[in-house]
Write a protein that binds this DNA or RNA. Structure first.
Lengths: 189, 189
DNA sequence: TAATATAGTAAACGATCGTTTACTTTTCAA
DNA sequence: TTGAAAAGTAAACGATCGTTTACTATATTA
């Protein structure tokens, strides 16, 4: 069963995203999967290996997703340099698509919450969180607005991204989460 | 030395805000204070008691701070019902003051980061995080904008608060954190 | 100053941690 | 059909966890 390795990854991510890495034990992971702890080591070298596999998996997903959509990849670092070609409407459409991705996609959503809980534990995790959800996005948008001849690109990027960032958190506790993408689109347009 | 009890509280909060509650051991706390673990139990019943004392302390701080400023208290729950009397300029001034509080005040800033790391672990912590930094603030501002005759009070509250919320996180990793209060004021005005 | 709380130390408790070992079951190609 | 690789179990390893105990040092006060 090659399925088990995948189940371990997604179940671990689920637990990490709720309680944080340190608060989750190998017994928790194994127990939730209905197997014993020893079985975990047939698929991963240890707890740390599971965690790092999650990071690598998200990186893959992000790269594949970006290639498929012809859009900037993780943290918007490899964004196309042709900023001018993106209209406001296109930017909004792309942004809504990213919002749906980080909220509706189970893996991406759990990964985002996990990174939120790990961001202060080490410089590496802090940098990764900022790349995905902080400065990385802000810097990309600032460049984009600057290239489009905006007077105050920094403020424009902030005004554009801040609602996105707040809604990511609000989505997790929302009564009607499905409405948030529409509300965001209305605000950005 | 009554000082020790206070040192335990602030050192614990510092560690909790960096690593999360579960990842911090009593040995860590004692070690960073230069005392042994047993000494901690002369001041607190246990690890849980330290954590809950931090929550109570923040509640006290918040209530005192609100009384002193004649402003709404924790989560803006006990806000004065006379929304109309607050002008935009006053609202901005108050908001900047709150921003400085949650970033520059050492206890409040660490508490905010701690709550960020604990928000998904239990419904109680989730509710507390939302009260301080999520729906609690958004609901208060929505009511305020509605009473002021705003067409779309929900969007207005979102547009107003979202930069605040994003800057709280950006402040922690900023090269020049002192500029953020001014940048926020410029954006809100 | 002597009596007495108070604050701190050192060591140990049982429980749980991540991990390893020895062994059994299952899968699947030769 | 058979035999080896892969996947799983049960139990134990040493380390660390929160907490307790027995004892010592330090203030405070009558």
């Amino acid at each position: 069963m090659e399925k088990t390795k995948e189940k371990i990854l997604s179940e671990s991510l689920k637990l990490f995203s709720e309680n944080g890495y340190e608060a989750v034990s190998m017994r928790d992971i194994a127990g939730n999967l209905g197997i014993t702890q020893g079985a975990l080591y047939r698929h991963y070298a240890g707890k740390r290996d599971i965690f790092e596999s999650i990071l690598r998996r998200m990186e893959e997903y992000d790269r594949e997703y970006a290639e498929h959509c012809h859009l900037p990849t993780v943290g918007y670092a490899d964004a196309p340099k042709s900023y001018r070609e993106i209209s406001r409407a296109e930017l909004v459409r792309f942004t809504i698509e990213m919002f749906r991705h980080w909220t509706e996609n189970e893996f991406a959503s759990a990964f985002r919450r996990m990174l939120t809980l790990e961001q202060y534990r080490s410089p590496e995790m802090g940098a990764l969180y900022q790349q995905y959800f902080g400065r990385g996005v802000l810097c990309y948008l600032t460049d984009l607005f600057r290239e489009n001849g905006c007077d105050d690109p920094e403020s424009a990027a902030l005004q554009f991204y801040a609602p996105f960032y707040l809604f990511l958190n609000q989505y997790d506790v929302a009564d009607a989460p499905s409405e948030y993408a529409c509300r965001l689109e209305r605000i950005l347009s």
